[in-house]
């Protein structure tokens, strides 16, 4: 464990708790893409299948359990409890356009042709594009609630910090995982546009609104 990965994990935890809190407190999931949340749920479930078989540390197990629980709770709030506030007209990104190619790629490019490894690879690839429906929804509505932009900033920062963690691990532990690194770079690049808007607008107290 290194500081970059720890801060990255905490930023990730902050992001998903922030979103759950926003939906719960405002009793509304307006502006939130349910499709992205479904895909994040899929990411955690396919990645953490080894939750009960492969014990690494208390921290690792606890975080995995929290991520899965919070993701399921968020999906429940969006599609059941506060379903009336779900903005399905703007959450129109076709998930199958992401899941099918990612599933195919996971079969073709992986470290080991075993079920667990292919599911892990699928999870890594899916996570890199899972935010697209959310970014697409913001581009359609033209704006995002400030709390939702904080959620996206924390979520984008987590994988950016993981890239620093991978550089650190490469130089100090001689370890690197190309699949995770390439997917992590793609994932972070997708946030660049949002990061620019966040820094130039939200940081100056303005609402995040895309140029119409």
């Amino acid at each position: 464990m290194n500081i970059f990965r720890l801060v990255g994990d905490l930023s990730h935890l902050l992001a998903i708790l922030l979103l759950l809190w926003k939906i719960w407190k405002t009793r509304s999931c307006a502006g939130v893409s349910g499709k992205s949340q479904i895909m994040f749920g899929l990411v955690y479930i396919t990645r953490y299948l080894d939750l009960f078989t492969n014990f690494i540390s208390i921290y690792n197990t606890t975080m995995k359990a929290i991520f899965i629980a919070v993701a399921i709770a968020t999906i429940y709030l969006i599609y059941f409890k506060f379903k009336a506030t779900y903005d399905s007209n703007h959450d129109t990104f076709r998930m199958e356009f992401l899941i099918v190619p990612v599933g195919g790629l996971a079969f073709l490019v992986n470290h080991d042709f075993t079920a667990l490894e292919i599911l892990w690879t699928f999870s890594i690839y899916l996570e890199s594009v899972a935010i697209l429906p959310q970014l697409f929804m913001i581009s359609k509505t033209g704006e995002a609630e400030t709390i939702t932009s904080h959620y996206l900033f924390a979520l984008g920062s987590y994988r950016a910090l993981y890239i620093v963690n991978w550089v650190y691990r490469y130089y100090f532990e001689g370890f690197f995982d190309l699949i995770a690194i390439v997917a992590g770079c793609v994932q972070t690049i997708l946030y660049c546009d949002f990061f620019y808007l966040y820094v130039t607008k939200v940081m100056h107290g303005k609402k995040l609104s895309l140029p119409a």
Binding site: N54, N60, E117, W120, A180
Partner: peptide, 10 residues
């Protein structure tokens, strides 16, 4: 093997 190291990350 070395790949299992990768799985210590979340």
């Amino acid at each position: 093997d070395e790949n299992d190291i990768a799985k210590d990350e979340l």
